[in-house]
Nucleic acid binder design. Sequence first.
DNA 1: CGAACAGTTGATATCCCTCAATGGCGGTGG
DNA 2: CCACCGCCATTGAGGGATATCAACTGTTCG
Lengths: 289, 289
Amino acid sequence: MFCLDATKPRPPIPSTEHHSPTEAGRQRQGTLWSNLKEVCDLLQIATAVSVNNEEVLFQHVQFKNGQRVHTIGQALDYLYVVNSGFLKTVLIDESGNEQVLSFPMKGDLLGIDGINTRHYASEAVALSDCDVILLPFRKLIALSHIHPALENLMYRVMSRELVREQAMIAILGGLSAEARVARFLVTLAERFAAMGYSSKLFNLRMTRQEIGSYLGLTLETISRTLSAFNEVGLITVDQRTIGIKDIESLRTLRRLSPRARASKGGAAKPSTPAHLSGSAAPAADLMHD
Amino acid sequence: MFCLDATKPRPPIPSTEHHSPTEAGRQRQGTLWSNLKEVCDLLQIATAVSVNNEEVLFQHVQFKNGQRVHTIGQALDYLYVVNSGFLKTVLIDESGNEQVLSFPMKGDLLGIDGINTRHYASEAVALSDCDVILLPFRKLIALSHIHPALENLMYRVMSRELVREQAMIAILGGLSAEARVARFLVTLAERFAAMGYSSKLFNLRMTRQEIGSYLGLTLETISRTLSAFNEVGLITVDQRTIGIKDIESLRTLRRLSPRARASKGGAAKPSTPAHLSGSAAPAADLMHD
DNA sequence: CGAACAGTTGATATCCCTCAATGGCGGTGG
DNA sequence: CCACCGCCATTGAGGGATATCAACTGTTCG
């Protein structure tokens, strides 16, 4: 039902005992529920002490493509853990423009930006059908008093999110359009890999417009840059299907050489990727000295 | 007893003197110490329950201009609360370039980006002589078990920081150079006001280079933009001394009109600020539709 | 099938970066 | 004291990266 169709049929995670390969939780009264341990596992942080508590169960909720998990200003009652599916979080500026902040997927925690004011500061929208676990905030805090490992996990997840945003600031502040798109693809590939999906071939869940907003660029620049990467053989592009051909070059790319960017029907694709300039190969057109 | 008097005789410019008169703490054995309540007050979050604990004291440490409070990769032993002075936090990218992430000042909490990995993810450098309170991380967590208000405060401070970074991402992702500088000045003015200093006249603690890194611009662009704002009468500039003349226009500014930007000796400064285009006055040269 | 939306590509405009020269300011040492 | 030096800031000229505007195609979905 979830649609990472670009990959071969491979069970995404080393399947654990008592639930489906991709989704945590067990049926009860027609809805899915997860215990504390499953939630912690999902958050991907190696909890020193494994939490075992079968009494407390957290309810799953499904959201259809386009539905909002929470909106700006809404009172904070829950945090949310994504169990499956893809979302975006956005800020709406004073004149109604959307700024995409992140593309949460399986294992990500939503809502922590609302803890300070007790009202969500951003909006979370499903980009595909999603399965999300509800964590009643007050109950969660109470639980953390019983399970120090959970308290520890909360701090770490929030800190991790902070570091991610710092990295985003560095990308927006210092990198060229091409480098931003390259990093975006690498990060996406790594996240897919961490989820057990193919990191070589995947589908983008978001529009060029949304990618552009996320990276501080226009949709046309996203489209052009992907085409340029395709031209040079770094990736393949077909609409939203992306194939990663040379992740190492993407990882270190600072800027395509002018020749590579200009080429159209001309001398394209020599087998050696001398078209690129990355940190390892100091060339004349590097961005930072 | 202690002297958290943000209302009092205010030094118009917190310029060269090393310590402002608004410092918490009491002397003991030649060094300053603060109790838990003072720390919570400093963090500026209205703690529902006031924490009273005279037994636990936190040590102050002084840093001179240029000294580092913590560095990237260093083991996380403390969080730090700024009691006085000004700092920057920076990321160092793979080729040694500095990316400024924030300009912490009184009441800001440093080090939380290190909680996840137990190693600081960024570097904090003093931009003036600073007085900083050491919060031993483990002790802090232990204390939070005794004082629920402190636990609450920790979550809120981290969430607040997250929201600040989201705002930064939105600025970098969506605003023009002029709008970024304008927002920077407004934010700075508001923070000075919150600290009890003048929001109309203050000294920048950082170089144009550092502002540029922070805002994703070059030092020349910062300089030019400040000059342009000065030209139009929004601010006065003399080296690092900034006078705010029209904070409302700065707050809503999207872009200076081409005319205003070009003017040099020409028809400058009509008394009505029709030079500006902000969200309230839709003009032809707005950035977003 | 057609309308709305998503994506591609081209031509042009422009914002901001890069490179360069100059001047101010604060230290330091003769 | 003043010359000198390094760092910071200002300003100009020019170019390049990216936005903007526009046309066209492909896709989706009622």
